[in-house]
Simulated assay, not measured.
Amino acid sequence: MQAARGASLTGDQDGPGPDATRPTGSRARHLVVFAGVALTAYVVDVVSKAVAVDRLADRPDVELVGDLLKLHLVRNPGAAFSTGTGYTELFSLLSVAAVVAILWVARRIGSTGWAVALGFLLAGVAGNLTDRMFRAPGPMRGHVVDFFMLPHWPVFNVADICIDVAAVLILVQVFRGVRIDGSRVEREERGR
């Protein structure tokens, strides 16, 4: 049966209309990508920190690429660049809120780019949150394990790399005009 302008009354169309959402299979595929990236990067972060603590404690710097890249174990109670070292519990609470927000937004993922970006973001935030929850001096006050050292740059870890990669990928998606749900921003909207 057909309604006005050729629309089906029974809902069976050849494809989704302009206002239709993405098919469930596509959304599921993007969620699998999101979860796969997040889980893989999170495991790499947690394992690399465990190895760093085991192998670098009470040991001088290990040169990987001369003076350009060294392994140097640091326990950071603060945020990026060791700022706010007296606010570890606040950073822990903000990290919990960030994980919840990422998971909430991830329900709408409709693009592979966003799936990868949010997967890296979740892995990075969750990786550092894991340290804050389970490392000394105690829950919500734990110090984050950092071990990569570049000249004239704060020591960092895999979780920090994940957050940086996520930031770049999010900017790429925004500049491409791709929304989280996979739809595109029209040129007129971007020009405003």
Rank of each mutant, 00 (worst) to 15 (best):
L118P: 01
T88L: 06
T88V: 13
V96L: 11
V99H: 04
G86W: 07
T83I: 13
E89A: 15
T83M: 15
A101W: 08
F91Q: 02
V105Y: 09
L103E: 12
A97Y: 07
L118M: 12
S111R: 02
A101R: 06
A106I: 09
T88Q: 07
T83V: 15
Y87E: 12
A97N: 08
F81I: 08
G86S: 14
I102E: 03
W114M: 01
G84W: 02
R107P: 07
F91T: 05
V96H: 03
V116N: 01
A97P: 04
V100A: 14
F91N: 01
A115G: 06
A80N: 05
V116T: 02
I102A: 05
L93F: 14
G110N: 05
T112L: 10
G86N: 10
I102K: 04
A101D: 08
G84Y: 02
V96E: 04
A115R: 01
Y87R: 11
W104D: 10
A98N: 04
R108V: 12
E89W: 14
V100T: 12
R107Y: 08
I109W: 05
G84C: 07
A79M: 03
L94G: 04
A101L: 09
S92N: 09
L103C: 11
F81E: 10
A97E: 06
L90S: 15
E89I: 15
I102P: 01
A101G: 06
A97V: 07
Y87F: 13
E89F: 13
V100H: 10
A79H: 00
I109F: 09
G84N: 07
W114A: 01
A79V: 03
A101N: 08
L93I: 15
V105W: 13
G113K: 01
A79R: 01
A101S: 09
L94I: 14
V105F: 13
T88K: 05
A106P: 03
V116D: 00
A117Q: 00
T83C: 12
